[in-house]
């Protein structure tokens, strides 16, 4: 028998596969856009809640009588803020979605909630620890590892540790202002209750620093 090659069969299968493939890429990018939009909307909503607390603080002339409200409100705000951060990292590292504007929007929210937490801490005598991680996705080899170590350190402690993180290299004015405020020169760096520690720190080292923090 003379053999032949069913080129039209493979051609058709190739085209159908290509069509499904392109449809898949399209569906994927639509879903990624939806993810970033959702995060952006959630950030706006939490921003409003931060503003309400700030407003309440102003109206009550910084009296401590509303401390239970501030504390409970802030706790849920800070949880949300941290969650947004993880989701943004996930989109960036696992899905290759780089949305600089969204990150900038997020850093504004972080700065607001950080300052608010700091203020309420002083006002209400709360013993939570505020930890800020300064990183860079573009020129820092151990920042990802540092991020994981920070989470590990917190998981091993009973103390309430609130986490904030800023990428100093994406041109966010807020992040840069914080870098200046704490005089950050290297990545990674952490600031624990206002005190700066430069360079990589393991989970154990961090736990010690956190326990010592006032």
């Amino acid at each position: 028998m003379k053999r032949k090659m069913s080129l039209s069969l493979y051609g058709a299968a190739f085209l159908i596969s290509l069509a499904v493939f392109i449809a898949g890429v399209f569906v994927g990018s639509v879903l990624d856009t939806t993810s970033t939009q959702t995060i952006s909307e959630e950030i706006s909503r939490v921003s409003e809640r931060v503003s309400s607390v700030q407003l309440l603080l102003l109206m009550e002339a910084n009296s401590s009588s509303f401390c239970p409200v501030y504390l409970s409100e802030l706790e849920s705000i800070d949880e949300d803020v941290e969650n947004f951060g993880h989701r943004l990292s996930y989109l960036e590292s696992e899905k290759n979605v780089h949305d600089v504007e969204l990150k900038k929007q997020y850093f504004v929210l972080e700065a607001e909630s950080y300052l608010l937490s700091q203020k309420v801490r002083g006002l209400c005598g709360d013993d939570s620890v505020l930890l800020v991680h300064f990183y860079s996705n573009s020129n820092c080899s151990r920042c990802e590892e540092q991020g994981a170590e920070i989470l590990r350190a917190r998981d091993g402690l009973d103390r309430n540790v609130k986490l904030f993180s800023f990428d100093g290299d994406i041109g966010s004015p807020v992040a840069e202002a914080f870098m200046n405020r704490y005089n950050i020169r290297t990545y990674p760096s952490v600031v624990i209750n206002g005190k700066r520690y430069s360079g990589f720190r393991s989970a154990e080292e961090l736990q010690e620093l956190i326990s010592e923090a006032q």
Partner: peptide
């Protein structure tokens, strides 16, 4: 898998629904 994914595994699952879920489902 990054360490933080355990805190947002449900969100991460939702966000991972993209290209591969579509092609995989097909």
């Amino acid at each position: 898998t990054p360490y933080y994914v355990q805190y947002i595994w449900l969100d991460a699952f939702g966000m991972s629904m993209g290209f591969f879920t579509f092609v995989g489902a097909f």
